[in-house]
Design a protein around this nucleic acid. Sequence first.
DNA 1: GGACGTTTCAAACAACTGTTTAATATACTT
DNA 2: AAGTATATTAAACAGTTGTTTGAAACGTCC
Lengths: 229, 229
Amino acid sequence: MLRMTKHSRPGEETRQRIIDAAGPIFAARGFRKATVREICAAAGVNIASVGYYFGDKLHLYLHVVRGIRAKCEQAFPMPPLTGTADQQLKLVIETILQRLLTKESVGWEDQLMMREMHEPTEAFRELVEEYFRPQFDCLLIIVQSLVGHKLPAHQFEQLVLSIVGQCVYYRVGNKVVRQLIPEDRYQQHFDTASLAAHITSFSLAALTGMGYRDAISQACSPTQGVNTV
Amino acid sequence: MLRMTKHSRPGEETRQRIIDAAGPIFAARGFRKATVREICAAAGVNIASVGYYFGDKLHLYLHVVRGIRAKCEQAFPMPPLTGTADQQLKLVIETILQRLLTKESVGWEDQLMMREMHEPTEAFRELVEEYFRPQFDCLLIIVQSLVGHKLPAHQFEQLVLSIVGQCVYYRVGNKVVRQLIPEDRYQQHFDTASLAAHITSFSLAALTGMGYRDAISQACSPTQGVNTV
DNA sequence: GGACGTTTCAAACAACTGTTTAATATACTT
DNA sequence: AAGTATATTAAACAGTTGTTTGAAACGTCC
């Protein structure tokens, strides 16, 4: 039974069902390994529907990727930049780790993101601009605020990348970490909150210890825009 | 023309040629995308040779992966643990970055490693034990030496992972970084040596700033084995 | 030099893939 | 109610893949 009003064609439903079904499958299997047959079976539609609505498999994939940012922003929104810069840093690190380390039930978006990092498709460039760049700029502002004075731009960028790198590794190298660290100790000390606390204090200590930042001003620096050279 | 003595069958040569040709192709295309036909064409042998010598494509892949560690250790050997712990840390970070960021000409082994991290095969477990574990233990000893006193094991491990994470991100997230950082600035400040210097000072500053380590002992602590709890 | 095990080869095989087709069904318009 | 554009379907298509086959070529040993 199909209902087809002027503004909601019956096809819209199957179209959406295909996208919904395709996301987790592309994330789990990768673009190449994921088959149109499996996606259509999961969506409960005919094989030919992909060609009918998206042209081909690649364009379906691009539609899926382009819909990710919104979903991710909705599940774990970036925290507002209030409070001291120290607090801001901790919150952002926690948010990034949550997005990265959440279980597969909601986390297939990040799986796809990691696949794009490893084997970029056409969608990669805009994905960086719309997903990674905002996180990067956000951290850049916080770090500039923490340092409190001007530095060459590349130094700020390297500082931010050092922070991001620590977070991302727990996702990218997750399987390695799981094998390097004894299981019980992993369960006890490598949850999202503990890791966020460690990475935050590690990074704050680095900023302080590198002399970029007064050890005294540690817990009381409000955020202010700071320009690079 | 085939030469077949008792101890060096003619097949040994083609067998080796297949392995040599397969490595870069598996690394560049991934296990699935790499085709037996392309590998055999690159090796200059018949398609059927893979089945004849390795049984099937998967077992050829496993042979290739198992031969990686030796090659990598030979190209960029881990530095001997001499000098101050500070110097050791810098050398190890440099070695890791060199292994990770070397151009494709010699770096296909690490490409394969990254693929295994993302999509592990049967070879993953032993790869971690033989390749990642030594690096991890090496850094663990250095960090223990830098801290100079006992700490819970998981804290040492998180410190090491913070260091490794910074390095690995420049490989895993390379394409992201390349797009986030303006090209000219990347060329100027994001070479292996500069990154190694930054990551080293960042990490040393963190260790110092976290209070794990006397700021005074910074440049003169010789390595000594330190046991965790 | 002939017999034998080993190695190579071109060709075919079987399975799976994304895509297209042409017919059928559906819902809206007039 | 007829007509029409839209949507769905089962089936077939065309291409690529890993793997197997059976014969031919080769080197070694008696």
